[in-house]
Design a protein around this nucleic acid. Sequence first.
DNA 1: AACGCGTGGAT
DNA 2: TATCCAAGCGT
Length: 290
Amino acid sequence: MDSAYTEPILDWYAANARDLPWRAPDATPWGVLVSEIMLQQTPVARVLPVWREWMARWPRPADLAAEPSGEAVRAWGRLGYPRRALRLHESARAIVARHGGRVPESHADLLALPGIGAYTAAAVASFAFRQRHAVLDTNVRRVLARLVSGEEFPPRSQTAAEVRLAESLLPADPPTAARWSVAVMELGALICTARTPRCVDCPVLSSCAWQAAGRPAYDGPPRRGQTYAGTDRQCRGRLLAVLRDADGPVEKSALDVVWSDPVQRERALDGLVADGLVDPLDDGRYALPA
DNA sequence: AACGCGTGGAT
DNA sequence: TATCCAAGCGT
């Protein structure tokens, strides 16, 4: 349904959208899917060069599906959360096996792919196939919290009310709804940012509930801070970096030197093996998965 | 339904 | 320097 926000935000997007390659007219559904997975919890600037490499090397799902999963992990580089690379590789194989090598168009089929949840399924269906879905990512949730609910930040976990609100604001025409979804995301990414919103440049400042309320500070429960130094996550990252940067299998000693605590190191390595990110060879060495 | 899962730039 | 946080997902 159109609201007071619809036209100003669509117009703002038309004039201010970033020129991102996965939004180009020649971007394929596969390119959109790869971008969405890479962008999960990861800034655009860091994704850009890796996405370009992937598209040049694996222009179709079948190209990635033909590789060992370890190549996807290696080419993931330092994007973080490397299980995403593994699942993207699994998805490529599922797309070949179940969908003839073409990225499926239906939300349900997309959702059934590994590593694709409600957000990513809606995003691909909207941005690659111009369908009408509520696309609720962290940007959209924050924009709607401010614009409509008058609060600085959305609830910690997504609520049914947020989904209903997002659906209620979706323009009726599917291609317009898809444009609206990406426009709200872009507004959140460029103007209605988490830390220091640029309200002076906001196209809907005059109808913003948070602005009208005097921009009250968030008063909900404190967001859990993610400490990193000394965690298993950091340890896993160090271990996997050794394998990524090596040409082939590495000796256990090469892993041992990057983390001093042996108990934590073994636990992290076991975790990587359990996740399928590391392959323990019969000769005692370790490698990226075949 | 919390929690684990990487990384690095911005403030 | 420490903290925040960036197009989430799976368990």
